[in-house]
């Protein structure tokens, strides 16, 4: 039996398996599978692991997620309130920094693995590893140093500090969030995560100018990744475009996997990568909600026609909102399995 790992390794090595690997990011849907509210579902690592395993089994894609919701990282740094909705992902309801001076009081936990707020994630990872770890790669999501402050003070205040200072405080905070990234990475890898999504919207030309990218984003990404093994590390800009920076990121940061934006031209991305890295073409899953069967098939075919040539390609989804009808998830996956087949 060919596993998700087999497919991924074949693609990474530029070889062919039975079909291209398929990464489907179903998170909140796990609660529905288990008949739980989102708040109940995310309260226990056992639930999240069970939801992930059931959904992968049901749909047949190739990855598992240890991510609960993005705000979980802020909880490790003192966020006390997560707001739950019935129809969408949990959001941060408490900013750790109310005023800039609060930055001085932040302490980055030394040992994430033993941090109380990490224990449910750890349980989830342990179950996933035990049940399916040798067959399907387990993904973890870690926010880059430059993006993490937005979760601690809000994007508006962070953008203001990033661009207008005070720069000594900004740099102090970035040094701490860079340290936090590294410590999380150690904990996730120790717990068995195979794929680490390095999430940095500020690594996208949609978010920052070329000048800021070169003067700020790049140096801080270099610091985040100093001494870090790049194996299994994925460059992801939170759904924002990245084609324009692919070459720099490969040459300076050594990433070997890219998770493009739905707004990136897949063929152009492949051309820019030029066989130096694995590349995911990512579907616009907001449109997936309302597309018809024919539209879904046509879009998947278009993406795969653009991406499969030359290999080193896989299919990915973005945030997969709960609003996507189950039948559309199936249509999308059936189309990928059909058009992505090497048989």
């Amino acid at each position: 039996m060919i596993t998700g790992f087999d497919r991924l390794m074949a693609a990474a090595n530029g070889e062919k398996s039975d079909r291209i690997p398929v990464f489907c990011n179903l998170l909140d849907q796990g609660a529905k599978e288990l008949g739980l509210s989102l708040k109940e579902y995310y309260s226990k690592g056992e639930y999240v692991a069970e939801g992930q395993l059931k959904m992968r089994e049901k749909y047949g894609y190739d990855n598992l997620w240890s991510l609960f919701y993005v705000g979980k990282e802020a909880e490790l740094l003192g966020c006390k309130n997560i707001i739950y909705a019935n129809d969408g992902p949990p959001t941060i309801g408490h900013m750790v920094f109310r005023k800039p001076e609060d930055i001085h009081n932040m302490v980055i936990p030394d040992d994430i693995s033993n941090h109380p707020e990490f224990q449910e994630t750890l349980k989830c990872l342990q179950i996933l590893k035990k049940e399916s770890g040798d067959k399907y790669p387990i993904c973890a999501y870690i926010t880059a140093s430059m993006a993490m402050p937005a979760m601690l003070m809000g994007m508006e205040k962070w953008m203001d500090m990033l661009l207008s200072g005070p720069f000594d405080l900004r740099d102090k905070l970035l040094a701490m969030t860079s340290d936090f990234f590294k410590k999380q990475l150690v904990a996730y890898r120790k717990a068995g995560a195979d794929i680490i999504i390095y999430s940095n919207p500020f690594g996208s030309p949609y978010f920052v100018s070329a000048k800021l990218f070169n003067e700020l984003s790049m140096p801080w990404m270099e610091k985040d990744l100093q001494g870090v093994d790049r194996f299994g590390l994925v460059y992801y800009c939170g759904g924002a475009r990245m084609n324009q920076v692919l070459n720099q990121v490969i040459e300076k940061l050594g990433f070997a996997t890219f998770y493009l934006s739905p707004f990136d031209d897949i063929a152009q991305g492949k051309q820019l990568i030029a066989g130096r890295a694995l590349c995911a073409g990512v579907i616009n899953d907001i449109k997936l909600i309302d597309w018809t069967y024919d539209e879904i098939k046509a879009e998947v075919k278009r993406m795969l026609d653009a991406g499969m040539k030359g290999g080193k390609f896989f299919f990915g989804t973005l945030v997969m909102p709960l609003y996507i009808p189950e039948k559309n998830i199936r249509y999308m996956l059936e189309a990928v399995y059909e058009y992505g087949s090497y048989a």
Binding site: M159, L163, P205, Y206, F207, V208, S209, F213
Partner: peptide, 17 residues
């Protein structure tokens, strides 16, 4: 805005501010 390395969200934010 949004074109290659044209105006970015950061520049947009600063323009407005």
């Amino acid at each position: 805005f949004g074109q290659d390395f044209g105006a970015s969200l950061a520049q947009h934010f600063m323009t407005a501010q």
